[in-house]
Design a protein around this nucleic acid. Structure first.
Lengths: 310, 310
DNA sequence: CACTCTTGTTTAGTATTGCTGATCGATCAG
DNA sequence: CTGATCGATCAGCAATACTAAACAAGAGTG
């Protein structure tokens, strides 16, 4: 009669519950789980049948958690964290020799990817995969081993370690240093297009052209004109193509500066900003030897860059 | 593309995995989950597809865990413990005012049940349910709020609190104290049937008739003859029916001794044994106010009994 | 106040998943 | 070798989960 298994809640319904409770929205939960809202609604109802009590207060507009849901949610969350981690561990043998790092597209393309060949040469048998994604989605469940994030280094539930500081400086194609409108001093910028990087928008310490010019007392240059890009790499590529002068992130521009594709027209142009690059991974995660090796290598590369650059 | 949800293992397959890993047998796992072995086999295979690596080493005869399974199993277990507990908490509002205690059939019938009326009278609005089951099944998942167990009080993963000591003493129907074969001293037992309780078999400190007689230097009585019962209550009822003299557990016999249905023929007959009755519940479990009240009441009843009895 | 937008619910139909029951192959004990 | 036991496999069936579409109920807007 009292079969112990009957006492376990329906597991798939718990997934819907967790997502809905986290978002406080069935629609968003449905979106997250790639199902229709109706499916979520049904799963929740099934769980409520099991519980014998409502889990959400439906207030027309949105939904609220009942006490029962409130009380059980932390345990459900912990359970899923463990399941997620268990899943990773199960997969570990199959992933052996592969390290997956998630990072922002620009950083991946301009900083990480060019150095990867070197890693592969020195670490035989370990291949690195880069997953370039934008959002800093809660990745306790993502399939990356760790991530490189651009920000202040404080992330809820995640451990982080500083990788690299970031500085911002004007860069342009070497072609712009010649000819009648050659850039010699900041005032010369009036003859050129200003390229705006809006990828670091939420960092108040990151200067835009307007504040950069103001800080240097440059007159007669409108710091607001010019095209805007939402990714650092786009600014860099535009600048390299000779379209204008970019206020660029040093880490992203470094390889092009080193190759001569870009030049820094002003000696004192660079500004250290608050945001930086961080190695980030979920708190309880087991890091395999391969992953550790890769992280260590990345950090070494970063210190190298600091010696050479800026 | 890399949908975070795809990274979670199939949840129902995990249940099969946990059971199979615990039992190291697909057949037994199937039995536990009330499905066929084929179903388990398929679920495990599905999980192995997910993991990309085998989880069991099939050695024809039985199965062994691979490293991947070994490593992930603890997390899976913890996850299910939390899910189980979350399930209970969800159901708490619906269970309000109900306390479910699991205990051995004899103790339930002869000790607990008779006192329940009193509890109900003093604790209005709380009803107590008794689930009398024999096995001390791992009940992290059972639906009882707590259990009363007979034993030494050490249970893996469970918390316990001493409820009652147990003593063993000869009892019989008052009818046997009269007539030509009236029982006055231990030697008189030769004229009567000895009733054997084998329910405490695994307690070496618990005397049987043979050791009881030997300890008192009684000669001429064969301590091995007579019917044997595997439950304490059966011995008691046989004795009460006048069939013979039982070496009975005090706690089980107490109510019949009090009512005069049974009597203790010898003044010095009782022996304190190692085993006793314990309140037992899973370590991380949240005990509701109702449950606490019931536990407290049970303990009070137990101390009352100690004052009156023995 | 009507209109519309958003959000959750419901229902019937469909797709997916999970299970059975029978059969097979392997292993081990006698 | 033979019988017994255990796991794997497969086709068919049952249960579960999902979709699509219509519906209902606030909340914001003009």
């Amino acid at each position: 009669m009292s079969d112990p298994n009957d006492r376990l809640p329906p597991l798939n319904a718990l997934r819907a519950f967790e997502a809905a409770a986290r978002r406080l929205s069935f629609t968003q939960a449905a979106d997250e789980l790639n199902v229709t809202p109706g499916a979520i609604s049904q799963q929740i109802r099934q769980l409520e049948d099991y519980a014998g009590t409502p889990l959400f207060k439906r207030t027309g507009r949105s939904v609220l958690l009942t006490d029962a849901a409130q009380a059980s949610l932390p345990l459900v969350r912990e359970a899923f964290e463990r399941i997620s981690e268990a899943g990773r561990i199960m997969q570990a043998p199959a992933r052996k020799g592969r390290v997956m790092v998630s990072c922002a597209p620009s950083f991946a393309a301009k900083w990480l990817a060019p150095k990867l060949g070197e890693f592969h040469r020195t670490h035989d048998g370990v291949e690195a995969w880069i997953s370039a994604d934008m959002g800093l989605t809660d990745f306790t469940m993502a399939d990356a081993d760790f991530a490189i994030r651009y920000g202040r280094g404080v992330y809820e539930g995640l451990k982080s370690e500083k990788l690299l500081d970031e500085t911002v400086l004007p860069v342009c194609s070497p072609a712009l240093l010649e000819g009648p409108d050659a850039i010699k001093k900041p005032e010369d910028l009036r003859h050129h297009t200003l390229l705006h990087d809006e990828s670091g928008e939420n960092d108040p310490s990151c200067p835009d052209w307007a504040s950069w010019l103001r800080a240097r007392g440059v007159e007669g240059v409108d710091g607001n004109r010019g095209p805007r890009f939402n990714q650092a790499i786009l600014v860099i590529e535009s600048a390299a193509a000779g379209r204008g002068v970019a206020l660029a992130k040093q880490a992203i521009a470094a390889s092009d500066l080193a190759s001569g594709r870009l030049v820094a027209p002003f000696a004192d142009g660079s500004t250290l900003i608050d945001f930086g690059y961080w190695l980030v991974w979920p708190k309880g995660r087991h890091l395999s030897p391969d992953v550790r090796a890769f992280m260590k290598w990345v950090k070494t590369e970063a210190t190298k860059g600091e010696i050479v650059g800026v």
